[in-house]
């Protein structure tokens, strides 16, 4: 007896696994010095991405098995993804403001568009799917 439709669970599980693995790779790259402008080196920022990855990956097995606990980790992972995505969007705004105030000489949207922002955008459909599935959960 599963808590929700196992077919939907598998789709969400695969999506979460992909998101989790990408977060993990990005986090490790950031921890070890980054790669160009797109993935800047940031020890603690990278560790934060690794923790988000762990949260997503923790829920995969249960989601595949149709256990509602798996969805908790996917929703929790998305929550963290949103916190960091919004944080870096705010920081991008702050950098733009610094440029307008003449405190910095250049402002590059590309350099400020940190992986946490695009990963947040990529995880939005996952959250939508997982949230939809929580409505079907029965004990």
């Amino acid at each position: 007896m599963t808590d929700f439709d196992i077919g939907k669970g598998k789709t969400i599980g695969i999506y979460a696994a992909v998101i989790g693995v990408v977060y993990l790779v990005l986090g490790v790259i950031e921890v070890f010095g980054g790669a160009g402008d797109v993935i800047p080196g940031d020890l603690f920022g990278g560790l934060a991405l690794v923790v988000i990855a762990a949260t997503f990956l923790y829920g995969i097995k249960d989601t595949f098995d149709g256990d509602h606990k798996g969805l908790s980790f996917i929703i929790g992972g998305f929550f963290l993804s949103a916190v960091f995505g919004i944080l870096y969007l705010l920081l991008m705004g702050a950098d733009g403001l610094m440029f307008l105030l003449g405190e910095v000489e250049e402002f590059s949207v590309l350099a400020d568009f940190r992986p946490a922002i695009w990963m947040f955008i990529l995880s939005l459909p996952l959250a939508y799917l997982a949230w939809g599935l929580t409505k079907d959960v029965t004990w």
């Binding site: 934060a48 949260t55 929790g76 916190v83 944080l87 705010l90 920081l91």
Partner: peptide, 20 residues
């Protein structure tokens, strides 16, 4: 780890967002 990560986000927000 989640607690530490959230705390780190708080200080990133505090420091970087308040600069301008």
């Amino acid at each position: 780890p989640l607690f530490l990560v959230l705390l780190w986000a708080v200080f990133q927000f505090t420091f970087a967002f308040s600069e301008p």
